[in-house]
Structures are given as structure tokens and as C-alpha cells.
């Protein structure tokens, strides 16, 4: 099986599961479809030889963030019954807006002038941990350190939000 067939199968499945995330009525099913979407996107990364990003995508997105979503959904005990209803007018409006945006973006991309691909003996190594680590800790070391401050702020924020509620209950 050649690579373009694999790409088309993966792309079709990715779009299908992403649509199911939006259209599925049951919130837990939405989360599970989103996990599947992330696995398929990771498969796309492997196809592009970006192995580090593929693994990180599975660990961070499918592993951590989606489990957090699932955990909150189950904590709030949401199911099909208390799912908010939406009006048919909004559905049509959303479909028209989304479809129009898609057409505009694709039409704009048709006229884009693209650089020629750079494929040399170095390019298979671009997505490997060794190369990415080297660039991360030299060129992008300041954003890397800044992101740790961001995580600290997010952690403090989450703890603060959770704690405040506890005091009001008491």
C-alpha cells in the first residue's frame, strides 16, 4: 500500500471522528471520539516522520488533557438528559458560517505560492528527539523557561479556584 492511500484513509478517518465529536449527543462519547481523533492525528505525525511530536501528542493530549475532560464530565455527572438543547436556526447559522469560512480559506490557499520542499539527507532527522532537543535548549531556551512560569501560574490558578469554593461551603 502506497503512502498516499494511507494518507487518504487517515485523513478521512480524522475528519469523520472530528465530526462525531461535534455531532455526538452524549458528552462522554464526544470525549472518546476526541481521543480517537488525537490518535489519528498522531498517526499523521508518524507519517510525516515527526516521532517526538507524535508520542508527546499521545501522552499529553490523549493521555492527560482528555482524561482531565473525562474526569470533569464524570464528576459533574453529565449525560444525555441534561445536555443543553440548541435551536435549529443556530444549527443552520453555524453550518453556513463554517462552510463559508472553509470555502474562503481554501480559495485563498489555492492562490498561495509555496516554497519548494527541502528534502536532503538531514531532513529525516528533523523530528527526532536528538535534533529537537538541541534546538529547544539553544534557540528556544527562553520560551521553554517562560512556559514553566505559565504552568506554575495555571497550577496556582486551578488550586485557588478549587479552594475558594471550599471556603464558601463551610
Amino acid at each position: 500500500m502506497s503512502l498516499d492511500v494511507i494518507f487518504y484513509i487517515l485523513g478521512g478517518l480524522t475528519i469523520g471522528t472530528a465530526l462525531m465529536v461535534v455531532l455526538s449527543k452524549h458528552p462522554v462519547r464526544s470525549v472518546l471520539y476526541l481521543v480517537l481523533t488525537f490518535f489519528l492525528i498522531s498517526a499523521n505525525y508518524v507519517l510525516m516522520n515527526a516521532q517526538f511530536i507524535a508520542i508527546v501528542n499521545i501522552i499529553v493530549y490523549a493521555g492527560a488533557i482528555m482524561v482531565l475532560f473525562l474526569f470533569v464530565l464524570m464528576l459533574l455527572n453529565l449525560n444525555k438528559e441534561n445536555e443543553p438543547k440548541h435551536s435549529p436556526l443556530m444549527t443552520i447559522g453555524a453550518a453556513v458560517a463554517g462552510g463559508g469560512l472553509f470555502l474562503v480559506v481554501v480559495a485563498a490557499m489555492r492562490d498561495a505560492i509555496l516554497a519548494t520542499p527541502v528534502i536532503d539527507e538531514n531532513s529525516p532527522k528533523v523530528g527526532l528527539v536528538e535534533n529537537l532537543g538541541q534546538v529547544l535548549f539553544t534557540k528556544y531556551v527562553l520560551p521553554f523557561e517562560a512556559s514553566s512560569v505559565l504552568f506554575l501560574a495555571a497550577m496556582v490558578g486551578a488550586v485557588l479556584l478549587a479552594k475558594k469554593e471550599k471556603q464558601t461551603i463551610d
Binding site: 488533557i65 528533523v126 523530528g127 497550577m155
Partner: peptide
């Protein structure tokens, strides 16, 4: 990033994941 043979794009993805994790938590 793969197309142009440069690692910068993949590191941007790394930082987007960091921001997404923080955003989801809060």
C-alpha cells in the same frame, strides 16, 4: 516543518501543547 526540513515548527507545536494544557486546566 517537515516540508521545509526545519525543526522550528515542531517546537512551536510543543509550546502550543504547553499552552493548551494550562488553558484546559484553568
Amino acid at each position: 516543518s517537515t516540508y521545509l526540513g526545519q525543526a522550528d515548527g515542531q517546537l512551536f507545536v510543543f509550546f502550543i501543547m504547553v499552552v493548551a494544557a494550562a488553558e484546559a486546566t484553568v
